[in-house]
């Protein structure tokens, strides 16, 4: 009987990552704010954008920067006027989200993703 080897392992893990990526992409799209939304959002600018420039763009969009996150170019922002999400995009944001699932986490055979750690790294608006 012919048993599979490293090629199967490589293919399997690549397929798992691809499937997980697609599932995450689909759920992220569901969490994307429509252009007319306002309130507290997560503004995602290209990672190469300088913090000062991001700060200025948020102000020009009529919002207030609340805090940067650990992901370059991603800020928690707030704007009360309707259309805030659309104005952020007009200023060069890749997207505005009500929430973001991007959160590196680690668990083990016993330990879970720890609540304290989640709070430390959460980039929720």
């Amino acid at each position: 009987m012919q048993w599979p080897g490293h090629k199967l392992a490589l293919g399997l893990f690549a397929a798992i990552l691809l499937a997980a990526g697609l599932a995450m992409g689909a759920t992220m799209l569901a969490g994307r704010a429509s252009d007319d939304e306002a309130g507290t959002l997560l503004a995602v600018f290209p990672p190469s954008t300088r913090p000062n420039s991001v700060f200025g763009k948020i102000i020009l969009a009529g919002g207030k920067p609340i805090r940067p996150t650990w992901v370059n170019g991603t800020w928690v922002v707030h704007g009360d006027e309707p259309g805030f999400a659309g104005r952020l995009k007009a200023q060069g944001a890749i997207g505005a989200y009500r929430n973001s699932p991007v959160l590196p986490q680690l668990a083990g055979c016993f330990a879970y993703v720890d609540a304290k750690t989640i709070e430390m790294f959460a980039i929720r608006p």
Binding site: I16, A30, P101, V102, L103, Q105
Partner: peptide, 21 residues
């Protein structure tokens, strides 16, 4: 390795599910 990948893949996926639904 698959189990290890499970925690790597499901943690952000679970967060995505909570965020969106």
């Amino acid at each position: 390795a698959a189990s290890s990948m499970g925690q790597f893949v499901f943690a952000p996926l679970g967060q995505a599910f909570i965020s969106s639904f």
